[in-house]
Simulated assay, not measured.
Amino acid sequence: MPYSGTVQVGGPADVHELRDLMISKVAVGPMNNNAYLLRCRATGEQLLIDAANDAGTLLELIGDDGIASVVTTHRHGDHWQALQEVVRATGARTYAGRHDAEGIPVPTDVLLDDGDTLRVGEVGLTARHLVGHTPGSIALVYDDPSGHPHLFTGDCLFPGGVGNTFGSAENFARLIDDVEQKLFGQLPDETWVYPGHGADTTLGAERPHLGEWRERGW
């Protein structure tokens, strides 16, 4: 079956198979969070994005090979409920944005800044610091050398808009500015977007609506 990005809590993972990387997407409860397991095809090394909840589901997805690292996209509690248990079971190094790490109750081994590179085996991911949903949210970009980029946005970009800024006009302006400049301004329409909740999208599908989002203010 081709990858669709449609997953349900309690259901199977959906796997996006690229030349150098396998991306497995699974949904966990109770807030229908997405977690993503990235596996380098050359080395077998694995990285988890957002140990959100349901540690048993995540550890089953990880399997006997374990993970080398786990990235938390931002400090909100629904994105790290299973982090302590996953780290305890796997010994993985923890990564988070520098300005959100203090809000994550599991110690962060590596603080990420805008433009930093982290690796899963032979595959490199670039961190993009996006302000507004939280002070230190991190998106991750995999620029596939044999295809189009792949973008993991946490709760900063979804189909239909940017993330929640909780009624703050200032935070909304900062978030949409960062999303426009660091994501839409630097990546092509073909970029596949993997958000922290719900369905996937592409930058091309969302780009025509940036003006509408600005006008409505959320």
Rank of each mutant, 00 (worst) to 15 (best):
A96D: 08
D78V: 11
G66L: 05
G185L: 15
L118A: 11
L130Q: 06
V86D: 08
G115W: 05
A127V: 13
L203Q: 00
R88M: 10
L151N: 06
G63I: 13
L140M: 13
D109G: 07
M31Q: 14
S137A: 15
T73I: 04
Q186C: 14
G204W: 00
M31C: 08
L38M: 12
P149E: 07
P195C: 04
D116I: 06
V131D: 08
L140F: 09
L112S: 07
E60D: 15
D64I: 09
T117K: 13
D109I: 02
L48A: 06
V7I: 07
P149M: 04
L183R: 08
D109S: 10
A27T: 01
A52M: 06
L111I: 02
R19M: 06
I49L: 13
S137D: 08
N33F: 03
D177R: 15
G91M: 14
D155P: 06
T57H: 11
P145Y: 13
W218D: 00
G10M: 09
H129W: 15
V9F: 03
L112A: 05
G211P: 01
G136E: 09
L183E: 04
G91E: 15
F184I: 13
S137N: 09
F158C: 01
A205I: 00
L112F: 08
P2L: 10
